[in-house]
Write a protein that binds this DNA or RNA. Structure first.
Length: 482
RNA sequence: GGCGACGUAGCCAAGUGGUAAGGCAGGGCUCUGCAAAAGCCCCAUCAACAGUUCGACUCUGUUCGUCGCCUCCA
């Protein structure tokens, strides 16, 4: 089975066929940097990153661009409130954005263009639209003449008449039609501005994405993505601008990520019901956040709650534990220099091996079915459930090790785009600290041998209180930080 | 008002015209000085009603409920 993608433009799932074979040009609308991103924003960015990396895993060469909008009303307002220059605001939150996406395990896009570095391209594009008759200048501003573009509304399924009748658009005498949107805003006193053919001003919202997309990718791209709230007007307007300017189809596929809801309402900065990604990440590990996202299809709304995050974190802990057991079994073989018993093939291991073939196939089918990560995660949990049964040291032999290694490698490959495990080295606990804990456990072991339970439990409870969990097992006592 | 999405176990959530993945929580058991951890096992008939069908949770219609877009928003 090959990849299918739900395309907002056609309202159906379609086979994915890029414009150029094996090469994918992909653009995602990035943040407007007037604040840190919230966890709902993060969902969209993480899903775009996953799609990008899954495409790479599937063998495509992907060029992925995500813009940063670093000039707009909200930024100007934030700068005024804080009595800062607008560039101080954008610098702060741009850096914050990079920190957040790194923490979330996203890879940097191939390019992260900023609006303020693309004024020439934007002005040229606006000029092209004027020359082609799709835009007009009015008192130093330039507007897009929506009525001139025949395909207006094709992405969002709206038509101009409906939009007119239900118009909640502000009346503006400078515009021919209330639906016309601004490409270039004439400067207002005290606001940052740039020179243009129409006097000083700044770009409107929408035009920057068209300009930077064309500049960093091409007139025609394969995938354009963003949150569902961008379908109208942002993406609709991008299409109008880009296609009017080039006469070509702008993006072949449009992918939209569902909202993150909170208390059954869309999380949004304007409603004030949001959690900053960085604050969520203080409470929950990044892998838990990713699993939380992955367990629901990207296009559906997802409910944020600490309970849901906690569930995902518990699930992650179990995956991590089982993965570590597999890793330990494989390490053990290296310790033993490759010679482990040649016990007869265990039926459980054999069964798992068969299941794995099936689950691997089903995993790929799920991912190829419009990036159904929820179903794909189900397969991963099934694999881990099977794994937990066959990591017992008693079962180790050449066959089981072969199966474990194959599974481990598969998990590592999938983790590359899903990111449900953290494979970086655990935080270094200082050697002294380790030795002190080991010493205490050594003493406790002696006490236990003498059946001095009160004292030995005192050590256990004391350690537990300061965040060190003790587990007695037949192989000795283990400890870990909680 | 226009357009769209959704309603699956205590919670989260896949999926399908032939009798429901997975996660969390919960229960039982094993191990164990106790505890913890881990392992094993158990845990739904798919909002309601009507219709199409040999057969529907899956198709059609109606009802109820929830949410989103149409204005800044990932």
């Amino acid at each position: 089975m090959s990849l299918k993608i739900y395309n907002t433009l056609t309202r159906q799932k379609e086979p994915f066929v890029p414009i150029k074979e094996q090469e994918v040009l992909m653009y995602s609308c990035g943040p407007t940097v007037y604040n840190y991103i919230h966890i709902g924003n993060a969902r969209t960015f993480v899903m775009a990153d996953i799609i990008r990396r899954y495409l790479e895993y599937s063998g495509y060469k992907v060029k992925f661009v995500m813009n940063i909008t670093d000039i707009d009303d909200k930024i100007i307002n934030e700068a005024k409130d804080k009595d800062l220059d607008f560039s101080d605001v954008t610098q702060l939150y741009t850096e914050g954005f990079f920190e957040d996406i790194a923490k979330l395990g996203m890879r940097m896009p191939d390019a992260v263009p900023r609006v303020t570095e693309h004024l020439d391209e934007i002005i040229n594009l606006v000029q092209t639209l004027i020359l082609k008759g799709y835009a007009y200048e009015s008192e130093g501003s330039v507007y897009y003449d929506v009525g001139k573009f025949a395909g207006y509304g094709k992405l969002s399924g709206k038509n101009i008449d409906d939009l007119m009748s239900g118009a909640r658009v502000e009346v503006n005498e400078k515009k021919k039609s209330p639906l016309d949107f601004v490409l270039w805003k004439a400067v207002k006193p005290g606001e940052p501005s740039w020179e243009s053919l129409w006097g000083n001003g700044r770009p409107g919202w929408h035009i920057e994405c068209s300009a930077m997309c064309m500049n960093h990718l091409a007139d025609q791209i394969d995938i354009h993505c963003g949150g569902s709230d961008l379908v109208f007007p942002h993406h609709e307007n991008e299409i109008a601008q880009s296609e009017a300017a080039t006469g070509k189809l702008f993006s072949k596929y449009w992918i939209h990520c569902g909202f993150l809801n909170i208390d059954n309402e869309k999380m949004s900065k304007s409603l004030g019901n949001f959690w900053l990604a960085r604050d969520v990440l203080k409470k929950f590990r990044p892998e838990a956040v990713r699993i939380f996202f992955l367990q629901k299809h990207y296009a559906s709304p997802l409910s944020y709650s600490e309970d849901n995050l906690r569930d995902a974190e518990n699930a992650h802990k179990r995956l991590e534990m089982i993965f570590n057991k597999v890793q330990q079994a494989l390490d053990l073989k290296e310790t033993l220099g490759g010679s482990v018993g040649t016990v007869a093939i265990n039926p459980d291991v054999e069964q798992f091996s068969k299941d794995l073939d099936r689950l691997e196939k089903e995993f790929h089918e799920a991912m190829d079915d419009d990036f159904n990560t929820a179903a794909a995660m189900g397969k991963i949990f099934e694999i881990f459930n099977g794994l937990s049964k066959i990591t017992s040291p008693k079962l180790l032999n050449d066959f089981s090790l072969y199966v474990l290694k194959r599974t481990r490698d598969l998990i590592l490959e999938w983790n590359e785009f899903l990111g449900f495990l953290n494979l970086s080295k655990p935080e270094n606990v200082s050697k002294k600290y380790e030795k002190i804990v080991d010493l205490l456990l050594d003493i406790r072991m002696d006490l236990r041998k003498r059946k001095e339970w009160t004292l030995s439990d005192k050590i256990r409870d004391g350690l537990n209180e300061i965040g060190i969990a003790i587990e007695d097992s037949p192989d000795g006592t283990k400890w870990k930080l909680k």
